[in-house]
Design a binder for these strands. Structure first.
Lengths: 342, 342
DNA sequence: CTGAAAGCGCTTACAG
DNA sequence: CTGAAAGCGCTTACAG
């Protein structure tokens, strides 16, 4: 397929077609300068008829604004990055800004290359995002000539960053279980090395009582499955009551927990209420029964990060620090019960 | 955080620092023109010391190349788009081209806005990608002033498009089951309205025999679970043998199938071999047992799409048509057995 | 009310 | 071997 290089129209073509100078054409289009109403309208009409669209490269050269930002992520699989990205794009599309997506894995050299490419292209700002809030990207973004905002990843000192409120999310989940009339809560979650895990576990204990069991493992279905065995075997060994509600650290763990319970002949939610974390739709909504879970509102997080980096790019002053956004409970069927309480 | 607008260096600064004219500086950096070796080296050294990086907007204005391409997708969840994107980015990063990601859902108006924004920014080309090969994006890309390549989505007439070879993938899967010594194969898959489903089913029947059952349903765990019930109930009703191998249309269906089998007291792979499609790592690798499945090599597909759009942008001639890329079998444990056969 | 000129940061003939 | 000038497609003082 040979590509037909149809020459693109320039403002000269427009000016000629409208019978004005290029300065007048420019001012007409931008709503600046002073000229007869009739002239302005005519230019606009002709521009529209011709399908004239100004070259953003030329505009950017003058204005020092490219209407472009970069999104840097090390979340290859994209489970967290995609919602963030969707929020960023949604917030910025009507301001005319486009987003470069750069997936850098955990490779500092690759990160460096992408950052330089973005800078060369004069991005107005950069959003760094990742897969956990207590690790930073493998590259230092703190002395760039453009503003940087961090979302769902550890930010540099003195930077602006956004993350969801793990403690509040965990509280939401735990209180919901109690509200369903459950008394013997357990928490099956990920590695204690994660900041989010510690936050959520603390909030869980606060609500469920200091004696409530918290089991740490990997972020996997397999661990959810195994943890149920631990819990039930331990209860039997000590002749204690078995849990009637389990708050899981993510939806994959919840998946394994539900399986293990079914294998033991226990019914969800009749015998045990299960609640997850992440609202990973494609898994949570398809589970049998569909999973009640906590949504971190990553899209909203992306939206705010986008708006913030834009504000910085426009020279506005933004207070540094980490901003924490509330999570939301998504009620499906794995806890039984009624209306979401928030 | 007030952003320190450190002025960026221009070629004037570099030229001054190196004691040459800007034309010489430019030529030294680009390896063009003629000048003393010593001069060229000195300019390069000074550029490096100063950290000078040319403004890509200015370069683009002259060269009519922005070293930027757009990736348009309606795959919101990103399960298919992300690998494609990763391949595109990987193929293009060393040629200095960056990728705009535009998720347009199925909204033609949003698509239009994104396409115009990309065109304004003078992208060198566009890659359209989606979530099924027999549907096109909700926007017409056929008369754009830049080349367009389609990947994993229906292309316009006379365009270049890439998709994976569903028939070959299905053959790979079916033959693998037979090679494991299985004789009574069944195929549980998605809606017959999908081109891929029909392709795969035909290839399955070719290998497994025309009598082998093919059950169509939704792309869900729930359907996989239900389909097993149909299959087993039907076999009992007709006093027939039950399948000893099931080829599933995607990994989610496989997930439901494995669950249903376990609930019936059947062991995978001892009693029944299961094979999936998609190699959706996070699910396939975590299943119990880990799932043997077909990988569509979407990253390779993205890489080729990226290289192709670049070739077109550079004016090379590329034969139109749809190119089909081979799938790869990923052997885990759900079929039992040995080495992958390709 | 409208247009000629300068300039954004580069590259590329062209002249010396 | 090196530099002055023109120009990519725009916008913005400035002059008329």
């Amino acid at each position: 397929m040979l590509h037909e290089r149809k020459e693109r129209l320039t403002i000269h073509d427009l000016a000629a077609a409208a019978g004005v100078s290029i300065s007048t054409a420019s001012k007409a289009l931008n709503g600046t300068g002073r000229m007869g109403m009739e002239t302005r309208e005519r230019v606009k009409r002709v521009a529209h008829e011709l399908g004239f669209r100004p070259n953003a490269l030329a505009k950017g050269l003058l204005s020092k604004r490219s209407f472009t930002i970069g999104l840097l992520t090390n979340d290859t699989y994209g489970r967290f990055t995609l919602p963030v990205m969707a929020g960023v794009a949604e917030a910025l599309v009507d301001r005319g800004v486009s987003v470069f997506l750069c997936a850098i894995e955990d490779d500092p050299a690759l990160g460096q290359i992408h950052v330089e490419a973005m800078l060369d292209k004069q991005v107005d700002g950069i959003i760094a995002t990742g897969k956990r809030v207590d690790r930073s990207l493998p590259i230092d973004l703190s002395n760039l000539p453009v503003p940087v905002v961090y979302a769902f990843t550890e930010g540099a000192a003195g930077s602006v960053s956004f993350r969801s409120d793990d403690a509040q999310g965990a509280r939401l989940a735990s209180e919901w279980l109690i509200r369903q009339g459950r008394h013997r809560l357990a928490h099956i979650t990920g590695p204690e090395s994660f900041f989010s895990v510690r936050e959520r576990a603390a909030a869980f204990r606060f609500v469920a009582g200091g004696e409530a069991p918290v089991l740490h493992g990997t972020w996997s279905e397999g661990w959810g499955h195994a943890a149920v065995a631990h819990l039930w075997d331990a209860a039997v060994a000590r002749a204690q009551d078995v849990p009637d509600a389990i708050f899981c650290g993510n939806d994959q763990i919840a998946r394994g927990v539900v399986d293990a319970l079914r294998e033991r002949g226990l019914k969800v939610p009749q015998d045990v209420s299960i609640i997850g974390f992440d609202n990973w739709e494609i898994v949570a909504a398809q589970m049998r029964p569909p999973l009640t879970t906590v949504d971190m509102e990553l899209k909203e997080l992306g939206r705010q990060a986008g708006l913030t980096v834009l504000a910085l790019a426009e020279g506005q002053v933004v207070e540094p620090g980490v901003r924490t956004l509330p999570c939301r409970l998504v009620v499906r069927e794995s806890c039984g019960g009624g209306e979401p309480h928030s």
